[in-house]
Design a protein around this nucleic acid. Structure first.
Length: 212
DNA sequence: GAGGAGATCGTCT
DNA sequence: GACGATCTCCTCT
């Protein structure tokens, strides 16, 4: 059921065409896929269980709503690239750009289910897995946008504008053939505008989904 | 278990 | 100069 490190490395990244669509179509299709980080010694991999769609000029909650700036340029660029930004003075958030070159849109990764490289993720997060409550310690690794970025070592300097469809990239998204699960759609989290838009997509009942 | 406040800084006005 | 697609810690119940 869980793919080994070696087989994960043989899986091709999702192609650019996958991302060259409306974020509302990309989002549910990303659920169940794997985020893969190739490190020197180890491979980090986790299943995507929660994402949010952010649209272009029509979406007041999106960074791209007020037009193209230096920061959000990736959202306006070709699809399949990582958009990483720094928020609240503490955290990085990880997105992937969608829609054809010139149109703004993206998907925010909100929660993952850790599969391999769990020890490395725990170290990166400063979380001890040897506590009695192994279940809740595991949840602390990647259940939240800032958390998963820290677990995967994702930073703006290192990863912004990276091509996730390039097999040579150290950060990719792959399909390991995991069967699709029931999906729930809810309003987005942590925003103050466009609260009525149901654009948050989660794997129903998955315990790694961030709460609120 | 729930709720509130502080931390902390890049980006845009 | 204000604010934000968050997290953690602390307090109260």
């Amino acid at each position: 059921m869980v793919a080994t490190n070696i087989s994960i490395l043989t899986l091709p990244p999702l192609p650019r065409e996958f991302y060259q669509r409306d974020p509302r179509l990309v989002s549910p299709n990303l659920l169940g896929k794997l985020l893969v980080r190739k490190q020197r010694k180890r491979v980090l991999a986790a299943r995507i269980v929660e994402v949010e769609a952010y649209l272009g000029a029509d979406d007041p909650a999106a960074h791209s709503a007020s037009g193209r700036t230096l920061r959000n340029a990736v959202l306006f660029g070709p699809p399949g690239h990582s958009y990483v930004y720094f928020i609240y003075g503490n955290h990085f958030c990880f997105n992937v750009s969608c829609l054809p070159d010139g149109e703004a849109g993206g998907v925010l990764f909100r929660a993952l289910e850790p599969l391999t490289g769990i020890k490395e993720m725990a170290e990166a997060r400063g979380v001890s897995l040897n506590e009695g409550k192994a279940d809740s310690a595991l949840r602390k690794l990647t259940s939240g946008p800032g958390r998963l970025a820290e677990a995967f070592g994702i930073t703006r300097d290192r990863d912004n504008a990276k091509d996730l469809t390039d097999a040579r990239s150290d950060l990719t998204i792959v399909d390991d053939g995991f069967p699709s699960q029931p999906i729930e759609i809810t309003p987005r989290v942590g925003i103050t505008k466009a609260l009525d838009h149901p654009l948050r997509y989660i794997v129903a009942g998955n315990k790694f989904v961030s709460h609120r």
